[in-house]
Amino acid sequence: MELLMAVSIGVLTACGIYLMLRARTFPVVMGLMMLGYAVNLFLFSMGRLATEAPAVIGRAETHADPLPQALVLTAIVIGFAMTAYVVILIIRGRKTLEHDYVDDRVNERDHGVAEQGLSKRAVAMPETPASAEADGEPRP
């Protein structure tokens, strides 16, 4: 059970971090949620893993630590609220920014201003196409 738990937490964290590093908002939010699940599982396992051990004294031979369970519940509620907020924020961001990139400037650079700048300069300075090319080239 320990191995299964550890592997699940690890896989969830890895997926979460991978998704969070994506450039668009939706994968980032999915990544945050996955990381949230991983964190909750981790917090839960901090009370040590045991079977047939209720969190109430006297119901069985052994009893589980109830505190991590309470902490996980709190963390779930908070995570739920935060996810709701961030989803609303990205919907509003999509409307206000008119794109769904996490970084506003990425969009300008790759799809808007840079290309316009290139064409304007190419028109304005036809005798030096090489320098215009170099100036207007989008940075990697």
Binding site: M20, T25, L32, M82, V86, R92, G93, T96, V102
Partner: peptide, 13 residues
């Protein structure tokens, strides 16, 4: 909105 997105996501992490 753009600054807020960074702030919120970083703080959630």
């Amino acid at each position: 909105v753009a600054a807020s997105m960074h702030y919120v996501i970083l703080n959630l992490f």
